[in-house]
């Protein structure tokens, strides 16, 4: 029998260090995060966004607006697959007009989710700039998109699957590489 090989590529402390580093990098890049708005892409990107926002709040001692942005309606591959259910969109009260928006997702792969997110942002205003933070960049981009803040670069083959588990939804923090042969 040919069982899929599982390999934990990031454990809880790796994830914690990555998220902390990303929070510091955002702070540094934005020179104090004064006009930063952090928007997570459902599902797991939202939890990461809240972690990052929480850390910046601890470092700086003031509130950082964090929200969520569902990009489903803006995807270009909707008709290719089964219907996707919609997830919450929650834009902080300050809005995104002239703000520095940091999009957060768990895995960066084809780049199509991020493209959809850039379109979705247009519904709510025109940010000063948009940055992208991801926990894992696994390569295989299909669009000219890159991340500004990366937890871990993970070269993968297309036949492999990356599973990000976060304690908010999965009771554990880990990133697993599954090689389905």
């Amino acid at each position: 029998m040919n069982l899929p090989a599982h390999r934990v590529v990031l454990d809880a402390s790796d994830i914690s260090r990555s998220v902390t580093r990303i929070a510091h990098e955002i702070l540094e890049d934005s020179k104090g995060a004064n006009d930063v708005v952090i928007l997570g892409i459902p599902n797991r990107g939202v939890h990461l966004a809240h972690r990052i926002g929480g850390l910046i709040e601890t470092f700086e001692g003031r509130e950082i607006p964090v929200g969520s942005l569902d990009v489903t309606m803006f995807r270009d591959d909707l008709r290719r697959g089964k219907l996707r259910s919609l997830e919450p969109t929650n834009i902080p009260a300050c809005g995104i007009e002239d703000r520095l928006v940091v999009l957060v997702d768990d895995v960066l792969y084809s780049g199509r989710t991020v493209r959809a997110a850039l379109d979705a942002l247009g519904e709510f205003g025109r940010p000063r700039a948009v940055r992208l933070a991801v926990l894992v960049d696994r390569g295989h981009r299909e669009l000219p998109i890159r991340a500004d803040f990366v937890g871990k670069n993970l070269p993968t083959s297309r036949s492999e699957t990356i599973r990000v588990r976060l304690r908010e939804v999965d009771d554990t923090d880990e990133v697993v590489l599954e090689a389905t042969s």
């Binding site: 309606m73 909707l78 008709r79 290719r80 697959g81 089964k82 219907l83 996707r84």
Partner: peptide, 10 residues
């Protein structure tokens, strides 16, 4: 959306 959005009805 639920009837037309995907490749088949949701």
């Amino acid at each position: 959306y639920l009837l037309l959005g995907g490749s088949e009805s949701g």
